[in-house]
Design a protein around this nucleic acid. Sequence first.
DNA 1: GCCGTACCGTACCGTTCGGTACGGTACGGT
DNA 2: ACCGTACCGTACCGAACGGTACGGTACGGC
Lengths: 237, 237
Amino acid sequence: MLAAAGRSGQSEMGGDGSVFDGDPASGDAGFSARQNEVLEVALRLLVEGGDRALTTAALARAANCSKESLYKWFGDRDGLLAAIVTHQASRVRIIDAAALPKTRDEFEAALQLFAEDLLTVLLSDTSLALNRLSVGSVRGDNSGVGAVLLERGKRRIEERAHRLLEAGQAGGHIGFADAASAYQTLYGLIIGDLHINALLGDQSAVSTLSIGEQARGAVARFLTLYAPAKAGSKTST
Amino acid sequence: MLAAAGRSGQSEMGGDGSVFDGDPASGDAGFSARQNEVLEVALRLLVEGGDRALTTAALARAANCSKESLYKWFGDRDGLLAAIVTHQASRVRIIDAAALPKTRDEFEAALQLFAEDLLTVLLSDTSLALNRLSVGSVRGDNSGVGAVLLERGKRRIEERAHRLLEAGQAGGHIGFADAASAYQTLYGLIIGDLHINALLGDQSAVSTLSIGEQARGAVARFLTLYAPAKAGSKTST
DNA sequence: GCCGTACCGTACCGTTCGGTACGGTACGGT
DNA sequence: ACCGTACCGTACCGAACGGTACGGTACGGC
């Protein structure tokens, strides 16, 4: 199982306004060019038609490749799904370390950017399709595609957030005792019930509020809660 | 489609500490005793084995009923799934109207109870299985089991929360301009990323923190944000 | 005693899908 | 000219599943 899945992050960069890399074939993750091409088509099928639309036959036909090649490359249908997740994860921009915020304004801006990125990614058609797929394939003791998505997607975002929070505390902009708890609060404030609603097919999800507005509100609330020099909260628990 | 699914809420009651009714066959929702019995078995199969374990043949065998009866009762496999969701929704206790909180302490207690209930329900095996099922069956333009779950499950909780928040504002315990926004904040603070993690099969979900602790923290943060007479927050947005 | 109703158990059908096998082709190396 | 590699396209197989049909049985009404 999981025949082809190696290599970790490399060659990160991001400059434009999008969270995704523009070039469909740039986010190498250990697959050949042809394989990435096929995975791209698979992803498209998945987004358009959901789980059941992604049959090996349909993928072979849509991608102009043979089923035999699919099984040679990915070994298994689950291997294919895992490969899709890995492939997509390598396409998401993760602003790495480097320019950690120093001033208060920089910190707030970084927080805002993180919130917007999180919302953009989590509510994108691609991510929703992938999450639906992963959620649907969790069987009892786990260890399926869901685990792959958790590892390749969520964990990385979580790490970025942790670094950001640590930097904020180091700079004296925020104060917290438990980083994990603080992160969970931040996540909750940003996402709310938007993600699960979107996953369940509720179209109204974000349309009411722009992503920028939603992110701004979340950041403001987060700072209200965790900014140290402000109001006299007794920090329960 | 959706052959047997009528009748709305009726005969609500709840007294013990659990969020679920104890009697498996009490939460009538328009189905006969035998049908509820079968739905109960279906729910068990779904929880134990996920989507793919719930085949009509397997259900018929496990519940000692014939496939023909299944199709007579629920018309369709989707009808069966919808019936399962409806059936389970009728089993969840929704503390209705009546004793709305007056004093500040009552309000906080009600908030705490709401948070604990929400966590208990959303992280229960049953709810997770149902959510996985619903999420997995969202095809493009929606209108599947996901919609049913949204309508029968989430909306009702949302309404309860709204009444609670309104009561809190009426009593002067909290202040907000937009109820929907306040609810979303409350939801986010309570759930965070626990729900999606649990849906993806992450066992560690709640084990770290007890539900009571998690709820307490969320309520404290919510009150910090929305209590009017406390610190001088400028209520952004 | 007769009939209708509701149900069970089993067998059956058509379709779909994962996975395999086979023949054919382009291409680069030697 | 020959061969290995990598690939495509198609056909095929076996299993599983949704859905239907049929025979049999318990039971209540009359």
